[in-house]
Computed example of a mutant assay.
Amino acid sequence: MTITQLRYVLAIAEYKNFTNAAEKCHVTQPTLSTQIQKLEDELDILIFDRSKKPIELTDVGRKIVQQAKNIVNESDRIKDIVDQQKGFIGGEFKLGIIPTIMPTLLPMFLKTFIKKFPKVILKIEEMTTDDIITKINDGHLDAAIVATPLKIENIKERVLYYEPFVGYVPDDHALSSLKKLTVSDLNLDDILLLEDGHCFRDGVLNLCNSIKDGTIDKFQLESGSIETLIKLSNEGLGMTLLPYLHTIDLNENMQSKLRYFSPPPPAREVSLIYHKSELKMQIIESLHKVISSIIRGAIAFQNVQIISPLPK
């Protein structure tokens, strides 16, 4: 039994297809099939039920896959130990970032991080929190930046910063005369929201549900991006809530529509998350340090009320 064979097993379990798994592992399909056959012969069991389309794991195969994940992770840890001993900070690092954080945070830290750690090959992908959790657990992401707390057993969270919610209120709106907002001023039926699947949307719903019982009414409009929400609000279709970093680069006219909350303002907790196996910790530590140091100059808010992104 070899670690390479176990990596092949994990690839087939994920893709449910020998050809696709072989492409992922950068080997020919006959090579992969031969190695899987050798492993099954050695163990005297079938890991995969090849009669099913797509291929399925057998009962014992599911148990083997769980153990194979542990073994492969631990084998990867050996390289980590050597890298840390040598003080080496480099290699490929796959980072996921949710859509409501990516456009504002990434430009703030990316250039600094690349300059400071030129041997790290960052591969960054924008994706939803649900996709991020799946990919971290499957070993396809090394870390991610998301809204927390998530309270997931296999995933560790390290807070980067707290980002307040800010009201964006068009001039003809009933709340435009207020200098400061309170949570009780909000009316869920009048707030433009991101479409389902965004954790910032869940945070807004949780915030509004804290002052309103019962079922959620139908929203006026939902959008896939914060930029579209701002444009819709400018058309007089309602107010919206923005993460603080999205307000920094707004023009003077848009800045005049911002309404901040009375302290403590509602805020989201933004964290760097990674698997409990703690692989590539030297890069994770470096990433956390760079982002934390940069963000301190942009967000001075500490006395905040954290709004959970967990759907209620």
Rank of each mutant, 00 (worst) to 15 (best):
Thr104Ile: 13
Glu74Arg: 13
Lys119Asp: 07
Gly96Trp: 03
Gly87Phe: 00
Ile98Asp: 09
Lys115His: 11
Asp83Ile: 00
Pro103Lys: 13
Phe88Ala: 01
Met108Asn: 03
Phe113Ala: 06
Gly90Arg: 05
Ile114Asp: 12
Phe117Gly: 01
Lys86Met: 01
Met102His: 15
Phe117Asn: 03
Thr129Val: 14
Lys69Tyr: 14
Asp80Gly: 06
Arg77Thr: 08
Thr100Asn: 11
Lys94Thr: 15
Ser75Cys: 12
Asp83Trp: 00
Glu74Cys: 09
Leu106Cys: 10
Lys115Gln: 09
Gly87His: 00
Leu106Pro: 04
Lys115Phe: 11
Thr100Trp: 04
Lys94Ile: 14
Glu126Phe: 06
Leu122Thr: 03
Ile121Gln: 15
Asp80Glu: 04
Glu92Arg: 14
Asn73Ile: 08
Leu105Ala: 02
Lys123Trp: 04
Glu92Tyr: 06
Glu92Ser: 13
Pro103Asn: 11
Ile78Asp: 03
Val72Ile: 14
Ile89Leu: 01
Ile121Lys: 14
Val82Gln: 07
Lys69Gln: 15
Asp76Arg: 15
Phe109Gln: 02
Gly91Cys: 05
Gly96Thr: 02
Gln84Asp: 08
Leu95Gln: 09
Leu105Val: 14
Ile81Arg: 03
Phe109Pro: 00
Gly90Thr: 08
Ser75Arg: 11
Glu74Asn: 09
Arg77Phe: 14
Pro103Glu: 13
Met102Lys: 13
Ile121Pro: 07
Phe117Lys: 03
Lys111Gly: 09
Met108Lys: 13
Asp76Cys: 10
